[in-house]
Amino acid sequence: MSRLRQLWVCYRLQLKVMMFSPFEGFLQVFFPLMFATAALLVYRVNNDPEAMLYAGIGAAAMGIWTSQTTTAATLVQRERWAGTLELVVAAPTPFAFVVLPITFGMATLGLYSVVAVVLWDWWLFDLPLQVENWPGFVLSILMATFTIALFGFLLSVTVVRYRTAWAIGSALEYPGWLLCGFVVPLALLPGWVQPLSWARAPTWGVQAMRASAAGESPWFDLAMCAAVGLAYALLAAWLGNRLIDSARRHATLSLT
């Protein structure tokens, strides 16, 4: 029970902090919104309703990815700047249980971005969301959000010793949108790139969203999404412990 309370308090507190930050609260929604707009403007030129719907569904989910890249990469750095990283690491609560609720807070902002982009597409492009299987669709969005939060967890611990981690996170933005097939069918990408796409949980999440929207079964994609997300979590937990231990041993936690 105390663990659940710690996770909830950490999630709620960090979500409030992020919601009031112009960079995280506003830009994390505005950035994917404008990129989704740019992509849909390209699709709009030929005005193929099927292609527009395809792009519209993927574009809606772009914000979930954005909510993690730069922000999760700077998660540890922000604690470092605030002078709280040593306290967090020294606390009896495992480091993973501090980081995870923060990345879930970021993912919640990503969910907000999904709603914003769907409404925006409807208003600007007259593109209402057409979904055959709503429960499957909502479940797919939640699964994509959940696993992208786990990716954020992995990213945040991977770059723990990288002083300018935000640049890495920022550089992951466009490749993620491209490789996960948010607005481009994976079949168009070169063959050697496709295994990279399969190793990304959002790829399966977006495919599950599209399958649900088309009335097809999303279960295989959802299962793959969950499996890849679980792999992220296990890798992050293992890597996180090793990197934090190493940083403590070499006294490089503060990077000063």
Partner: peptide
């Protein structure tokens, strides 16, 4: 550590993203 990912990789990945969007949409 900032220059390479933001100034060098950034434009390439943005170009690739929209070039593939263009190919998918059959535009340009």
């Amino acid at each position: 550590w900032i220059f390479v990912p933001t100034i060098l990789l950034g434009p390439i990945t943005q170009i690739l993203l929209f070039a593939y969007v263009g190919r998918a949409a059959g535009v340009g």
